[in-house]
Write a protein that binds this DNA or RNA. Sequence first.
RNA 1: GUGGGUAUAGCUCAGUUGGCAGAGCACUGGAUUGUGGCUCCAGGUGUCGUGGGUUCAAAUCCCAUUACCCACCCCA
Length: 421
Amino acid sequence: MISCVRGTRDILPDEIHLWHLVERESAAIFSRYGFEELRLPIFEVTELFARGIGDTTDIVEKEMYTFADRNNQSLTLRPEGTASLVRAYIQHQLYKDGGTRKLYYAGPMFRYERPQKGRYRQFYQIGAEVLGPDSPGVEAEVMDMLMLLMERLGIRDTRLWINSIGCPACRPAFLAVLQEREQAAAGRLCADCVRRVAVNPLRVLDCKNPDCQDTINALPSILDCLCAPCRSHHERLKKYLGLLGITYSENPRMVRGLDYYVKTTFEITSGALGAQNSLLGGGRYDGLVEQLGGPPTHGFGFALGLDRFVLALPETVRAGLRPVQDVYLAPLGEAALELAQVVAARLRRAGVAVAQDFQDRSLKSHMRHADRLGVPRVVIIGDTEVQTGQVALKSLITGEQILVPLPELEAVLRPRPAEKE
RNA sequence: GUGGGUAUAGCUCAGUUGGCAGAGCACUGGAUUGUGGCUCCAGGUGUCGUGGGUUCAAAUCCCAUUACCCACCCCA
């Protein structure tokens, strides 16, 4: 038997309804906020991610699925979406359309990691990006949109974390001070941290090793070292969040794993997940468009983990989502089967969802089967019905049974109500 | 990349000191010759993850390996 490869999985019909729910709600709400969807390739030239994400990040250094195609070009299965989106934004000169572009994408991403709860090698993200303005109002608007999305999905027990990691004007000075202080304290830090001091001093702040906490707590906070514009930006964001009634926690130790972020970063965690408790994360990336060859453009966005959203859906939502057919046809015998075939086709054209089983079952078996499918009504077609042109329509809810002339069947079995929205 | 746990029927899981492979659920048929749910009866189902080893005998003990789960790490 051949199984799917490690870190990938099949999403079976029992679960797919949850995915549709999240995808449907996201699309509906994002478009309400003015976002438009675009579809991006699954793979890109490797250089795009190396330059976009940063070639010393874990993602680029050890997690990418990189391969040479038959033309010996180095390609990479996308580990995230922002770099591709920005590439498309530049390639198609979407900035020429005027001020602000709000775009979103959805699809699989690929990272070579050790799988665990909420972490797969092929995982799914929905991401949205605002290109153009640099206002913290944009950031508050996006966070508000996410709050609404989670509210609509019934996802609770979440927490919004915000931080500012500064900009090219203030971060280098902070990093220098931070690195110096970390070096001085290196004797009291874990081995991982000592390594990070040289490579990425910010990551030391994010260490979870209990033995490091006292030392880390004594290190300077980025929020105390922001330049005036960054500080003002951060304060305005907090003010807007207050106006919108959005509760948040400031976490000066939260850093992101991608190099392109500046100023605001944020994350929403869920208590319903395990160690991989981050439902979504994002931030501002003002230099990325320019770095990838476009005009200077501000950017702000996030990506949400679809797999994790599905995991975090409440039990009440998880149950009872399975769609059922409107009616079950129970034919008895060959003549009835022929008639049922025609009736089913007619009903389906009239908008009725028809369940039909082609096994030669006893009526009892048909009834039991229909009951297990959750179908509310059964049409019984046997020899009598074939001869008289009337079929028996039984409600499995009330147990009531009536005779319906075949031509009236469509009218009696109302089409399912049109989908809302 | 590191550590711990797990792997037996379609699903959830028992399986004692090594001695015939089990239960519940699900599925199929019947009790009710054409009427579901509740009840009762009957029935089928296995590469005991894989490959070696020890033994008269291995689901059980040993070694290796793979996958899954959880944590570290990392991130969505």
